[in-house]
Simulated assay, not measured.
Amino acid sequence: MPTERITQDTLDSILALQIVVAWAGEGACDPKRLDWWRTDLIDEYGGGDLFRRLLPKTHSWASLETVRQAAIALDRRKRSEMARPDHVCTLFFWGFSVDEQLAERLAFHKRSREQPRDTLKQIPVDIYKPFSQAEFKIAIEIPNQKVEFKVVPSGREVLGEMLKALDERAKKLASALLPLPQDDSYPMPFYRLEEN
């Protein structure tokens, strides 16, 4: 069966949400953000400085790629606690075909040497400014819509029909992070894939 190619705009929309959530989830920065993963990979005086010295031409993309990988790793760890970890869809796990296309698209951007804020205009907040929880909430919420979910041991299972449009599904998964948890645990919103 041939792999369905996803449009560049759709891939960019998903990447933008992944990047902003990965950035917001950092906790080793000062001041810390949501503290979902113990990284500081983007900030100018943290990991961003290291990447700038190591990779002067691609440092911006390298830091975004690395913080995205930190989020993917935690997502994978949380999914591994589920009975069927590959039978869900999360913001950071779409299945092999989609995940591969997202990685290829990110690699394309990295090779272009354009700045992320110039290329991924879909990023809803300025990730190079101080973190504002209020701005983050506005960036990921779907106006006039509350995403329904039930809390289960592995995360937040999004209720209702899974949207076919991948960019819309990504928005709904990101919006299901709200309300933000009171502790520093990543709530991992997910759709359960239907059995065939």
Rank of each mutant, 00 (worst) to 15 (best):
M1D: 13
P2Q: 12
P2H: 11
P2A: 10
E4W: 12
Q8W: 08
Q8T: 15
D9M: 10
D9P: 02
L11A: 02
S13I: 07
A16N: 01
L17M: 10
V20E: 06
W23K: 00
W23I: 05
E26N: 01
C29A: 11
D30F: 14
P31K: 13
K32Q: 14
K32W: 05
L34N: 02
L34P: 01
L34Q: 05
R38T: 13
T39N: 08
D40L: 03
L41S: 00
Y45G: 06
Y45Q: 11
G47Y: 02
D49S: 10
L54E: 01
L55P: 00
K57A: 02
H59E: 02
S60M: 14
W61P: 00
W61R: 00
A62M: 12
A62R: 04
L64N: 02
T66M: 10
R68T: 09
R68V: 00
A71T: 09
I72H: 11
I72R: 15
I72E: 13
D75N: 09
R76N: 09
R76C: 03
R79V: 09
R79W: 06
S80T: 08
E81G: 11
M82D: 03
R84W: 03
D86H: 12
C89R: 08
T90G: 02
T90L: 06
F92A: 05
F92Q: 08
F96I: 12
S97F: 04
V98W: 03
D99Y: 09
E100T: 14
E100S: 09
Q101K: 06
A103T: 11
A103N: 02
E104M: 12
E104F: 08
E104W: 08
R105F: 03
R105W: 02
L106T: 08
F108N: 07
H109I: 05
S112P: 07
E114P: 03
Q115K: 13
P116K: 05
T119Y: 15
K121S: 12
K121I: 15
I123Q: 00
I123C: 00
P124D: 04
I127V: 12
K129E: 09
K129I: 00
K129M: 09
P130T: 14
F131A: 01
S132M: 08
A134K: 07
K137Y: 01
K137H: 06
K137P: 04
A139L: 01
E141W: 05
P143M: 05
P143N: 05
K146E: 13
V147F: 00
V152W: 09
P153G: 05
S154A: 12
E157Q: 14
G160V: 06
G160I: 02
E161H: 02
E161L: 07
M162T: 12
L163S: 12
K164S: 14
D167W: 02
R169E: 13
A170W: 04
A170Q: 06
S175T: 07
S175G: 01
L178E: 04
P179D: 03
S185M: 14
S185V: 15
Y186N: 04
P187S: 08
P189A: 09
F190M: 06
Y191T: 09
Y191I: 08
R192I: 15
R192D: 12
R192Y: 07
R192F: 10
E194R: 15
E195Y: 13
E195H: 15
N196V: 15
N196E: 15
N196K: 15
